[in-house]
Design a protein around this nucleic acid. Structure first.
Lengths: 206, 206
DNA sequence: TAGATTGTTAATCGATTAACAATC
DNA sequence: TAGATTGTTAATCGATTAACAATC
């Protein structure tokens, strides 16, 4: 808890977790660092080093217990304490994320969606209400919402971010390609899709 | 072209590009490295170092010309030569990505979508046809499709990846939370959404 | 035992930050 | 000029990889 775990390691831990779920589903009890490393195309000593950040320990000559390791990762990632979020923008991307059941299993609860389209307001997605964006502030203050998932068209992104800034929300997960202006007291994560793709194609194509 | 530009730099260049488009839209001709650095919360000397990878050059005491810099970044990112892609899985996420107009402007052309749902097959999204997944191989070979954007439910992810492996497609951009088994001759990019969010919340919450 | 794997240290590598002369 | 900014080098920092003794 005290020890600092770097971004990179956190990112890999979620991938390990996904692999472990696969193993569990196939009723495999044991996994080794070279096996994980192979699936992710990384170094096996890195896997072991990452896993040493957890207090979990493997067995020489054998490997790690899938069950125990899964639990350790979940504890370290803080999946236990659920964070509440709302999705702002009930277009296809917003709907897709509302249905993304992986969020729940990683401790992210999507409470509701918000939009400005009269046709959408009042309907439901995946059992979650779609509210009017103008009601954001009052609705968010009653529940304990920490995160706004921003999936509006990029032309509206900054404007909506400013609205979010007036609520108690402290984190914006920005799926629009617009770089938002820094806002006092709000942390912004840009989900830079094109950047990720270009990193990939640039590395690999010639 | 010869010089190697790292992943990290490529990712930041797309963010710079997005900022430059903003400036251009507001008819601002000049931008400085501290301005960019402020928006992204990074070091200004890093911005200058990144920009030095381009052959573009700024002006002391003034900054960089927005127009010229935009063009330089576009050239470096290889946006000029369009890559063709198909989206596999015409659910909400697939539809959202089909509509994501940023793809085109960064040189990624989505040719069509594929699904196994009879109700969807034959219809169109954003002017793009939705075809039967069983026709993937033949359709892909006629066009010059390099990339498959994988947006199927995670339970089908590996199965569909194996189908893709039988085509001429060389790159899979995996939006499912399933870690795919390495496939000979195919490059896989895992869009690790939960990892990204957890990196963020872990860094920032306590 | 023999051999595969962990845990861990040391070596390498690369990315970020600091600093500052040169510029206009 | 004075002051802000670039371009670039050096210093720092952190992440990855290599290596190997300890283990069962």
């Amino acid at each position: 808890m005290k020890q600092k775990i770097s971004d990179k390691i956190i990112g890999r831990l979620t991938l390990y977790h996904s692999i472990l779920e696969d193993y569990a589903q196939k009723d495999i009890d044991i996994i080794s660092s070279p096996q994980i490393a192979f699936l992710l195309n990384i170094d096996d000593s890195q896997v072991r080093k990452d896993l040493n950040c957890l207090k979990n320990t493997g067995k020489s000559r054998v490997g790690y217990l899938v069950k125990d390791l899964t639990r350790s990762i979940e504890k370290t990632l803080g999946i236990s304490k659920t964070k509440n979020a709302v999705i702002i923008g009930a277009g296809n991307l917003g709907k897709a994320l509302a249905k993304y059941d992986n969020f729940e299993s990683y401790g992210l609860h999507v409470e509701a969606l918000f939009d400005n389209d009269k046709k959408k307001i009042g309907s439901k997605i995946e059992g979650k209400n779609i509210y009017n964006i103008s009601d954001l502030k009052e609705r968010v203050s009653s529940d304990n919402i920490e995160i706004a998932i921003l999936t509006v068209p990029w032309v509206s992104a900054q404007e909506v971010a400013n609205i979010i800034a007036q609520t108690d929300i402290k984190y914006i997960w920005n799926f629009t390609p617009k770089v938002l202006k820094p806002i006092e007291g709000i942390h912004i994560l840009n989900e830079n899709l094109m950047g990720n793709l270009l990193q990939f194609t640039h590395k690999v194509m010639d």
